[in-house]
Amino acid sequence: MKQNKYDDPGFFENYSKMPRSINGLNAAGEWRELRALLPDLNDQRVLDLGCGFGWHCRYAREQSARSVVGVDLSANMLARAREITNDPAIEYRQLAMEDIDFHGEEFDVVISSLAIHYVENFDSICSKIHHCLTLGGTFVLSVEHPVFTARAAQDWYYGPQGERLHWPVDDYQDEGQRQTRFLDNDVVKYHRTVATYINALIAAGFTITKLSEPQPSPEMLAEHPDMRDELRRPIFLMIAAVKYEAV
């Protein structure tokens, strides 16, 4: 299923009000960790899958990437991306990431941030990305952590006074579709275990170079004490992988 929730006017309006939608990467709590996984982008050909408003595309060009292609299924997202982008070296294409069909070794770096958990067939995505990456090319992705996606409720277990007692994990090994609530809308996500993410990348021919389960920095906790609960369970999983061999 190719989900295009961001072209729903109400959903898109709510998404556009999120801090990360207004202030970009600096408002994304996980950005510091994701940035650390990226290779040197100087003179690299970059592909961003699920590019949204194009924040990572513009960052890549700020780091002197040679060219950037941003792919997203949502016309609304791409319209906003084009509106705030003034760079002929960045191209935006409306396309489901499941449907990418780029030439072999067309890119040096592929990025996908918080988009792949909306995609049903991760194996196919991995194969297509491996195909379009040059030898030595890097794939960096972030997804909602499987501890977070295991239960469709995606919420804490609360005590009688509304206190957050613990984060429940159940049905972890039962992979597949989850209908969750996000921005007051029903949204379909796909739960996979950590092992499935890793093994799919390995099967596609990638070598895993680093994993990250980011947590708020001391600076963020000092500024936003309410984020301390984010230390109690991981919310994101990030993976860096390299194509060392053709398959």
Rank of each mutant, 00 (worst) to 15 (best):
M97A: 07
H131E: 03
L34H: 02
L73C: 05
G162M: 08
Y59W: 15
H56T: 09
P168T: 10
T138F: 00
Y92I: 08
W167F: 13
G54D: 11
S74H: 13
I116V: 09
G50R: 06
C132F: 04
G159F: 06
D72H: 04
V143M: 05
L41V: 09
Q161W: 06
F107M: 06
A96E: 09
R32L: 01
Q161K: 15
I100Y: 11
C126Q: 07
Q94R: 15
R93S: 11
H130N: 07
D72C: 01
E91L: 12
S127E: 14
T149V: 07
I125K: 01
R58C: 04
F148G: 00
P88M: 03
W167K: 05
R32K: 11
I129F: 01
A153I: 12
H145I: 00
D171A: 08
F139Y: 12
D101A: 15
S74Q: 14
L41S: 10
H145R: 00
Y92R: 07
V69W: 11
F148V: 01
G159T: 07
H56M: 12
G136I: 04
Y157A: 13
G136H: 05
L41T: 10
V143W: 04
G104K: 14
L133K: 08
P168W: 04
A89L: 14
Y172N: 09
R82D: 05
S64M: 12
A81V: 09
L141A: 08
Y59K: 14
D48S: 05
A115L: 10
A65P: 05
Q154I: 10
F122E: 03
V140Y: 02
A96C: 12
R164L: 01
D99G: 02
R66C: 04
V119I: 15
P168Y: 04
A96D: 15
K128L: 02
G70E: 11
L49W: 11
G104C: 07
H166K: 03
P160Y: 00
I84S: 11
T149Q: 09
Y172W: 08
Y118S: 00
H166M: 02
Y158I: 05
D72Q: 03
H166E: 03
H130D: 06
E91N: 11
A89S: 14
L49S: 07
S67T: 07
V71E: 04
E62R: 07
D171C: 01
A150W: 13
I129S: 06
